[in-house]
């Protein structure tokens, strides 16, 4: 009777652990996905139309997004500091 109870407790414990692991995994995946939104036009050709003002507005939006997808901080000093080198 006692052994049955222990086994049941262990089963419940294991199931909880598995659920916890899955939820942590899902949380970390969604965090990664939401971390840095890629520019929709990155890697593709930007469409250029010059018929009317709204065409140029659209072009400016794409250019802004593309330029915002890279940062000068990709070359920050911090990446060559002693701590980054493990010194």
């Amino acid at each position: 009777m006692e052994r049955k109870r222990i086994r049941r407790a262990m089963t419940v414990g294991m199931a909880s652990l598995v659920l916890l692991a899955f939820s942590l995994l899902a949380a970390s995946c969604s965090k990664e996905e939401g971390g840095k939104e890629p520019a929709p036009s990155t890697g593709e050709e930007i469409q250029v139309e010059v018929g009317k003002r709204s065409d140029v507005d659209s072009l400016l939006r794409d250019l802004d997004q593309a330029m915002d997808s890279v940062s000068p901080e990709d070359f920050s000093d911090a990446q060559l500091e002693d701590s980054a080198l493990g010194l």
Partner: peptide, 12 residues
């Protein structure tokens, strides 16, 4: 990544 974006915007 930078080169790719620069080429993309330059071309547009």
């Amino acid at each position: 990544r930078h080169q790719k974006v620069y080429e993309q915007v330059r071309s547009a």
